[in-house]
């Protein structure tokens, strides 16, 4: 009887121990890494870069880290057309200080605007002597145009087709981020205030309510807006405001952000994909920073101003 009791106690203990949740640490030994973001604008002469290091926290919540990981004292050079351009470091006020209360550290470069179809290299010498390298190339934008796009709003066939053409599209990995925007002024307290409204691609009926759906990043060089959606966007500018005459429409502009060969894959990995019910463990990451993480790339903004008909604008009660 005693042996049966012992066996019972032993088995019960084993089952109890087995049913416990075994401890699991998802982390391994921390290794410091360096992260550089140098995203150049092809449209301006002011360029920026940021530099930081990785960090560890005692728990699994990275927000526990409240020490700004940005690095100062590094030398950042861009080598372009046999010339070296060196960034200067600076700070700016942090708008959201809920995590870090120090000013934002960044590096900047004045009077540098890369021309199209040029190679550039980035060299970063960290304060500890470690070197990060990268390279990028600007696209050949002479061959970019909107010539096959609709140019007028409204369109009688009910659709506004915006198409752009890039001769090297098969060779270069550009992605596009589109927005169609209404720029207008509203008279408030006797002052004309500048405002803008992004036009959605569609309004979707969800739970008996229309929810705007905005275009995401695209690779295909065509986007079609329904005239009815544009009409609704115009109406929504003065929704619930009976004083339509206070609104002056300035223009409708299609803005297209072009991300170059190196920036495009980075952006696509950041945007991500809905997993739905599937479970993806090790998410892909992209970096073209040799010796570290981050990205070195170039972007451009191309704009298409639409011709607006006065009668169309007046039909909403607005001025033009």
């Amino acid at each position: 009887m005693k042996s049966i009791l012992k066996l019972f106690i032993l088995m019960t203990s084993m089952i109890y121990i087995s049913s416990c949740e075994e401890g699991f640490d998802p982390k391994t030994k921390f290794e410091e890494q360096y992260i550089a973001y140098c995203i150049l604008s092809g449209d301006t002469t002011f360029q920026t870069a940021t530099l930081s290091k990785s960090y560890d926290v005692s728990s699994s919540d990275p927000y526990e880290n409240t020490t700004d990981p940005s690095l100062e004292g590094a030398t950042i050079n861009i080598i372009y057309e046999d010339s070296t351009y060196t960034f200067k470091d600076s700070t700016t006020t942090r708008l959201d200080s809920s995590r870090y209360d120090s000013p934002i550290r960044f590096y900047y470069l004045n009077n540098f605007r890369p021309e199209e179809n040029k190679n550039m290299t980035l060299q970063i010498i960290l304060p500890n002597g470690k070197i990060l390298n990268s390279a990028t190339k600007t696209p050949r934008l002479t061959y970019f145009n909107f010539q096959y796009s609709d140019q007028d709003i409204p369109q009688v066939d009910g659709q506004v087709g915006i198409r752009w053409d890039y001769y090297y599209k098969d060779k270069e990995n550009l992605v596009y981020y589109p927005r169609l925007k209404i720029y207008y002024q509203k008279l408030e307290d006797g002052i004309q205030k500048d405002k803008s409204q992004v036009i959605p691609l569609e309004y979707l009926l969800v739970d008996n309510e229309y929810v705007p759906y905005y275009p995401s990043v695209v690779k295909f060089p065509l986007i079609i807006y329904y005239q009815s959606v544009i009409d609704k966007a115009f109406q929504d500018i003065s929704k619930n405001d009976p004083n339509k005459q206070n609104y002056t429409i300035k223009k409708i502009v299609f803005e297209l952000l072009l991300l170059n060969n190196e920036l495009a894959p980075y952006y696509m990995t950041v945007v991500g994909v809905s997993e739905g019910l599937s479970v993806i463990l090790d998410r892909m990451d992209y970096s073209n920073i040799e010796g570290g993480l981050g990205v070195f790339g170039v972007y451009y903004v191309k704009k298409l101003d639409f011709n607006l008909s006065t009668a169309y604008i007046n039909s909403f009660g607005y001025k033009f």
Partner: peptide
Amino acid sequence: TQILGYYDKL
């Protein structure tokens, strides 16, 4: 795959 650390990503 284990976690090596964290960094602030753009």
